[in-house]
Nucleic acid binder design. Sequence first.
RNA 1: GACUCUGUAGCUCAGUAGGUAGAGCAGCACCCUUUUAAGGUGAUGGUCGCAGGUUCGAUCCCUGCCAGAGUCACCA
Length: 495
Amino acid sequence: MSDNQKNLNEIKKFRLEKLKFLKDNNIDPFPHNFDKNNNIIEIKNDSKKYENHDISIAGRIISIRKMGKSSFLNVKDMSGKIQVYTNNQNLSNDEYDLVVRKLDIGDIVGIKGSVFYTKTQELSIKANKVELLSKNLHPLPNMKEKDGELFFSFDDKEQRYRKRYLDLIINDDSRDVFISRFNIINSIRNYLNINSFIEVETPVLQPVYGGANAKPFTTYHNSLDQNLFLRIADELYLKRLIVGGFEKVYEISKNFRNEGMDKNHNPEFTMLEFYSAYSDVYDMMELTEGMIKNLVKEMKLEVNGIDFKKNFDVFSFFDVLDKYSNIKISEMNTKEIHSVMKNNNIPLDKTYGYAKSLDKAFSFFVEPKLINPTFIINYPIELSPLAKVERNSNGKIVERFELFMNKMEIANSFSELNNPIDQKERFLAQQKLKDSGDEEAQVLDNDFIEALEVGMPPTGGVGIGIDRLVMILTNKKSIKDVILFPAMKNEHSNT
RNA sequence: GACUCUGUAGCUCAGUAGGUAGAGCAGCACCCUUUUAAGGUGAUGGUCGCAGGUUCGAUCCCUGCCAGAGUCACCA
């Protein structure tokens, strides 16, 4: 690859020559620190206060206009950008000739000087000290802009994901997404903390994986001499903590699932799970709705087409399925549902049982309609092996909700099954599915059963896919846009 | 996994009904002390994703492969 980058190598060669020039003149191109006293945004927001005052800023040069004995630099820090004016009179000790004339776009500089307005009334800094803080050796993509609009922008999605640091330097929108992501997680964390939840950490490397139906990644520990699995969910460990006497716990962490990738799926993704003892699924609904409303309000988010202000809708699984399909699917058997699927061109596999078929029908008829936040409750037991039976039902319905918005499922919650005998039977049923070839079926976890035998209080639990929530709240269509370094295949197969 | 589209200079893109490629920006040299998508002059910069095939000749046509995007399928 490097051999056919002659032009790039030439640019690097020139930069290296500049490095040498600086060193020959006793200028360290990579000094150890800089006394940065001001963020650029402060100066811009309060320009009257700073006019004619001394300030010091630092940041990356995003454009240069060299004009012989004077030069303009546009410098960008985390907070904003500002123009810097330099000339060979205001700088001391040949600084203009030795430093400024050698500057490149992409260099990181420290600037000391005073705030003033140019002839065209642009707020600027007249530099009396320009210090190179880090030399750019690899050129940046185009950064020409006018009135905040980029020209020839850095647009190639693949390169933006692979070289996220360039994306962040150049595309403010991209950086803002990750600041929003931070704020969203921060708001959630505060909300849970205020509600007396304790944040915990449970193992990523697990001898037995569980808590969801998914294919795991496997790895190997040398000194234990045993295989380990990367977690697919936090669930079983968090419930052990409820057994242990923690009454409210949560964890925000990466899960890993060895499955397909698309705009809604990354092999590692961030999940929030929280569990509350002596609570049921309806308590968790209230808590979840409060959490999301609080965060939308706190962040003053404007989300396209979604109304977070009114109370979230609550529909029963079968009611809403019958309503949107205009058929009494709730009264049908597997065979009848299959024929409905055929009539609507829903992809059908003959191995689909009752539960799977219902799930498919729901995805087809109902999910596309769920734009505003909507709780779906009263799921059929066949779809919900970890949930308690609904207290007033005939045993065919469980206490569970899923929260949908913008056609996506973003939360899943149960009144958690705490009967160890029942739980063991359900594990064994999963084991049978696994033996007959279902790679995503769950594995019997004897230690977890033993924990339930010790006794777990009635507990409500919720899982929320953070990446998807961030997608919705930042109006992004791909999960890759809300993950800093999304999974990508090697660019060249033999590297 | 299936289908469609994309891959040309560091970046953004042209282009050739098949005769080994152009522009803007960046970079280089020179001029320029309030410019701002600064400007002017000049000179650079490419195995046209990779590998085969057809052809006198391929960046262009064909096949395979690699990577990405989009749709669909599976899963959160």
